[in-house]
Amino acid sequence: MSDTAISIRNITQRYGAADESSAVLALDDVSLDIKKGEFLCLLGPSGCGKSTLLNIVGGLFKPTSGTCLVNGRPVDGEPHPDKVAFVFQESTLFPWYTIIENFRIALKFQGIAQAEWDDRAMRALKAVGMASFAGHYPEQLSVGMRQRVNMARGICVETDILLMDEPFAALDEQTRMVLGEDLSQLLAATGKTIVFVTHSLAEAVFLSDRIVVMSARPGRIKTIINVNEPHPRSPDFMLEPRFSELRNECYALLRDEIRAAMAAQRDPQPQNAGA
């Protein structure tokens, strides 16, 4: 258990009862070990169960079968806010609290002593360059600023593990890249374990130590690609031929899956045919 942060064992997730026609087999027997301090990307066609897998690791619900261990302890459908922080697909800043209040409430939920709240919050806000907006309400920020703050909130709880579900999906290309650099630096500085879901191939290659490519529904692990490049990564990495090779490799893998998924949607077959 020493250097394994997250251990996913034979996880299967089905939505709806197995005998229902509307049942969806989202994940089919997925196993994966994630090392401490690793940056791991989940890449796969839309609807293949990436969010589902992340939610299971985060303890938001129990899988239909299989187990997930975080630091050697089973997750079992209960969140461990002291070990795992979540950044969701959309901004989950609460609109009725100001930015700083949003940070305080996250720390309060986590059970951190009140004396530390503002210190930690401001540190995280500075890290993403949003310190001067502490007193604003989320609605007064642009979408990109909101998502930066949202990411900072995930960082300020200072957990070892950070689960990020398409945190930059709403952002423009350039901001994504800049935030990606920030994230790479953060990883190098803190040694956090990060599991990151994205649809952007460049982002996946630029950020990851390993890229897990998943198959179309039911989600299975298709391939794992290693990216041997130390963190923090500089933008120059993107100019190397290795970068485009890896990117093309991912695209080739995904293209087949997406074509398969689209074909399945055109003439749908029973979801649980094989199960």
């Binding site: 938001l60 969140p79 806010p81 002291d82 795992v84 609460f94 939920f109 986590q110």
Partner: peptide
């Protein structure tokens, strides 16, 4: 639903969820 999920992932108790998420949302 997303706000509830976020609060749960941060470790909010049932009472805290009502106090800090559900009630402010209902204002």
């Amino acid at each position: 639903e997303l706000h509830l999920r976020a609060a749960r992932s941060m470790g909010a108790s049932r009472m805290e969820t009502i106090r800090h998420i559900i009630l402010p949302h209902a204002v």
